[in-house]
Simulated scan of single mutants.
Amino acid sequence: MPKDSNQPVNDFNRRVSDFNQRVIDEFRANKGRLTGHFAQARLLLLTTTGARTGTPHTTPVGYLPDGGDRVLVIASAGGADKHPDWYVNLRADPHVTVESGAFTCPARAVVLTGEERERAWARAVEADEGWAAYQRKTTRTIPVVALNQIANGGPPNVNASSLAEAIKVVHDAFRRELALIRQEMTAGGPTLGAQLRVNCLTFCQGLHHHHSGEDLALFPFVEDRHPSAGPALRRLREEHDHIATLVAELRRVVTAPAGDSAAARAEVERLTLDLEAHLTYEEEQLIPLLDAPA
């Protein structure tokens, strides 16, 4: 039989597919926690619709926080001369699904252009020179894509089977992100880079929204069904106020023109210590109540 000239390419594609599937399986099984090479990476699962097949296609993709309800992904393909398949797919259909580990949400992809793309690219390169190395390997301009979350009009879709599990899943997501920020600050120089500022501000905003949601919905829900939890809930609300003060101070330091890395690192350490105590106490008090039979 004649030798298949496409066999090396097919073998490579199969290895890539198998590797991606292992990452996807681990990501979903552990709510975004990964081991090995990706243990300290910001990774999400991006599901696009195949431009030719029309079938869903899920790919692990690195991302950059961008404040609000959007994140940025970069179609580097490791510096290859062809755009990655997921980018081709979202150009054909910008409606995508994003899995962050804690949450799954629909999003709309927008390819950044002009000055907006250049600012985002400069932030990415400042944070990780590897992006520039990829650009040097190819003649194509590597695209930067914003994934804008589409509001569903209700509570977020947490990847959990119960309200008790949802508390732990969301808390662990905050723990992981704060650990990454601490690591980035330790590795950084005397001034804060632009992307690290955005990472901090995005974290602060997410934590504010989470605590606001608990104050407005979760805590009244628990209090109505478990009146004995009143003292614990009062303490948790007081801790929310205290953490809000710490968050405001971190925002102030991060947005200061000087961008003092040491001052920001000190505020992150203060926030980490008190936030961990708060999350642990909340889990100890609320999870047993929510796990109890109705």
Rank of each mutant, 00 (worst) to 15 (best):
L289Y: 11
D69I: 08
T186W: 09
N20Q: 13
V125W: 02
V268E: 00
A151P: 06
L112Y: 06
E126T: 12
L271D: 02
V268M: 05
T138W: 01
Q195P: 08
V125I: 07
A133T: 14
G189Q: 09
G213E: 09
P257F: 02
D260N: 04
G67W: 02
H37E: 10
L34T: 02
N152I: 15
G188N: 09
A29K: 14
T59N: 11
P231I: 12
H242L: 12
V198C: 10
G130W: 04
R265L: 14
P94F: 11
G67L: 00
P94R: 12
E126C: 01
L180V: 09
F203Q: 02
L72P: 01
T53H: 08
E118S: 10
L192N: 01
R234L: 12
N10Q: 15
L289F: 11
L43P: 00
Q40V: 14
A102N: 04
P288G: 11
D215Y: 07
N159Y: 07
L192E: 03
D274Y: 14
A263D: 07
A266L: 05
D66G: 03
G114D: 08
L163T: 14
M185H: 13
H209I: 15
L273H: 15
H226G: 01
F221Y: 15
L290K: 09
R117V: 11
E116D: 07
D85Q: 12
G189C: 05
V222Q: 01
A264M: 09
R182T: 15
A41V: 10
P106W: 03
K137A: 13
A244T: 07
T47L: 06
D85L: 15
F203D: 01
R197I: 09
E26Y: 10
P65W: 07
P8N: 01
G193M: 04
V247E: 01
D172R: 14
Q149L: 12
D66E: 06
A173K: 00
G153A: 05
G259D: 00
H278P: 00
